[in-house]
Every structure is written in C-alpha cells, then in structure tokens.
C-alpha cells in the first residue's frame, strides 16, 4: 500500500508538486493522469525514491521511505518514462544484470521473458530492437524480483495495437499480486485497466475517483441517449407532457425521420428506471425506439474538463453522443 501525505517538491521557487495526498490500496490499479509538466513523473520519481521530496511523507507498507534501507527498495519495481536500458547489451545480458542488481532469483527470469514475449529477441543488442520491444524489456526489468508495488510511467508508449492489448491484459493479470500505480497518456487504455483515477494538474490533485464516478460527477447523474423514429416536432411536443423524462439535449435528422435525444430523470429525488420510462414514452406515443444506451462522458472529456475548465470538448465522441444544445436551439427556435 502506498500512502502519500502532504507531498511537495520544489525546484528553487517553483513548486513542481504541492500538497499531494492520496492512497493506493493493496492490489489496486490506480491511473495517474495529468498534462505534460503536471508533476506526474516528479511524483513517481519521489515514490520510487529516485529523487527526494521537499516536504511531506511517502509511506510504503507502513514505512516512511526516508528511513528505507537500500535493500528495502526491492518492494518497488519501476518502469520510468524512458526505459533505463543499456544499448550495448543484449536483452538477456541486461535482464541478467538487473537480476544481479536486485539480487533476484534468476529462475524467475524465464517466466518474465515468456510472459513478455522476449524469447525471440533475447540475444539481440538492445540498440537494434524496436521501440515497442524496448518498452517490453523495460517492463521486464520492473517485474524482476517480483516486487509488490509496480510504478509504471507510460508503459504503453511505443507499442503497436496488438502489443497494447497484450500489455493491458498483462497489467490486469498483475493486479492479483501487485499494487500498481500507472501513468499514461493513452486514456482509453488506462480506462480499461485502472480501478481508480487520480488526475493531477499544475502539481495538485484535482480529482481522485473511479472513472464511472468521475463521469457521473461531471454529467450530474445518469443520462441515456436514445434514437427515436418519428416526427421530431411530435416527439418534442410529447416530451412536454411527460412527467418523468427531461430532455437535456437532442439532434434532429441523424437518420431519415429519426432524432437522437439525451434524457435524464426529471425529479432526481424520485427513483425511477429511466430505461423503463423511455420505453413507455415511446410505446404510448407510437414512436419506434431504435437505440438506447447510457450516455457516458469519455475519459478524454473527463481529463480535459478537470484539467482545463475553459476547454470543453465540442465533439465528445465519434457517435455524436454529445449534442450541442445551444446550436440546435438557435436553429430550432420554433419549438
């Protein structure tokens, strides 16, 4: 378990990281997000004891890392942003060296090599392998010694889609025996892997929650997007008379004679099943329900909204889930 308390790092008068407080529980995967220069790598470097903090505490399994003996660093495996590789060594030589450095059992090396598909390249010089392979070798060194805590800084960078899926599955499988703090710019990847997200902006934590909860906080409750076949005017008129559904957004003519609408509960105090009400609404008014799905906010949007309040995405996803109400209202002033 990692506990970060009031963590601050100053470079001269500049505060790279200020008063960070968070916890990463045992066997939890926590995504660490932030813009470039937000202080992610500085925080990870402090947790791994690569650099020291200006103030605050980092407690790992109940022990402050300031009082950590060098041998106790075994507990953490670290994959930095640029994998720390020696280009004049072969992959096998490098992993053997890390094994000796960490005083780890060399027998486990075979499993790691197999797990990360390094068998074919193990005799190649590191300088001659691809970027994706270098990333995998970097992850292999972090896994050597079976550390309880893994700190991964951009583990997916440079990997092709196939390798990314493998890496994602591998990280997920590591959850059983490891506590993982992972930073990534590929937000869809981190959304798949992480149990919880910590978003950092200008050295401060601006959000710490599960991806679903963050989305819900941003959208202020659950919403459902539906596609109805029928006359748009009739649909909108029928909506005025409905006691349960509130249309927060809509878009006409997405298909011939169809419109998309985003519904939410009109009275949040009243607990109803939105899906049921939507079905009843369509049935009672003889509209054909073509599609119905939860209206979610993508991780990219969460990230952008939280890190930059002024920057709100215009097109939230390719399926036009996000509909511009203002624009539509200007065009449809007759309603």
């Amino acid at each position: 378990m990692i506990q970060v308390q009031e963590l601050t790092k100053c470079y001269g008068k500049t505060k790279a990281v200020e008063n960070l407080n968070f916890v990463v529980n045992k066997n939890e995967i926590v995504g660490f997000l932030g813009e470039n220069g937000a202080g992610k790598t500085t925080t990870l470097n402090m947790i791994t004891n690569y650099i020291s903090q200006s103030s605050g505490k980092i407690i790992i399994n109940g022990k402050n890392i300031c009082c950590q003996k060098p041998s106790e660093k075994k507990i953490i495996g670290y994959l930095p942003e640029n994998p720390p590789l020696y280009f004049d060594m072969t992959v096998q030589e490098y992993l053997n060296f890390v094994c000796e450095l960490k005083k780890a059992d060399k027998k486990s090396l075979k499993d790691i090599i197999e797990k990360l598909d390094l068998s074919e390249i193990k005799k190649k010089l590191i300088k001659n392998i691809s970027k994706g392979c270098k990333q995998r070798v970097g992850l292999a060194q972090a896994l050597i010694g079976n550390p309880e805590i893994l700190i991964l800084d951009e583990p997916n960078s440079g990997l092709d889609p196939k390798q990314r899926i493998k890496m994602r599955d591998l990280i997920k499988s590591l959850k059983q025996n490891h506590t993982i703090l992972i930073s990534s710019h590929i937000l869809s990847e981190i959304n798949e892997i992480a149990d919880r997200l910590i978003i950092i902006n200008k050295g401060r934590i601006v959000a710490d929650n599960t991806p679903d909860q963050l989305a819900e906080n941003l959208t202020h409750g659950k919403k459902i997007i539906v596609r109805l076949k029928g006359n748009p005017e009739e649909i909108l008129a029928a909506l005025y008379e409905n006691d349960f559904l509130e249309c927060v957004d809509y878009k006409k003519n997405v298909e011939d004679g169809c419109m998309d609408l985003v519904f939410k509960n009109k009275n949040p105090e009243q607990k109803i099943d939105l899906r049921e009400q939507i079905f009843m609404f369509a049935k009672e008014n003889n509209f054909i329900l073509l599609m119905s799905k939860p209206f979610g906010v993508s991780l990219e949007e969460i990230f952008l909204k939280i890190t930059d309040e002024n920057q709100i995405s215009e097109n939230k996803n390719p399926e036009n889930q996000n509909l511009d109400l203002e624009e539509e209202k200007n065009n449809e002033s007759d309603l």
Binding site: K74, N82, P84, L101
Partner: peptide, 17 residues
C-alpha cells in the same frame, strides 16, 4: 544521459556501492 541512473538509484543498492 541515458537515464539509466533511474534504474541504479531505485534498485536495492546503496550509492556508495
């Protein structure tokens, strides 16, 4: 230069060694 010091300084070995 190659950032391999990150491996050395985060490994279970002292700087003196």
């Amino acid at each position: 230069r190659n950032k391999t010091d990150q491996l050395l300084f985060t490994a279970p070995i002292s700087i003196s060694k």
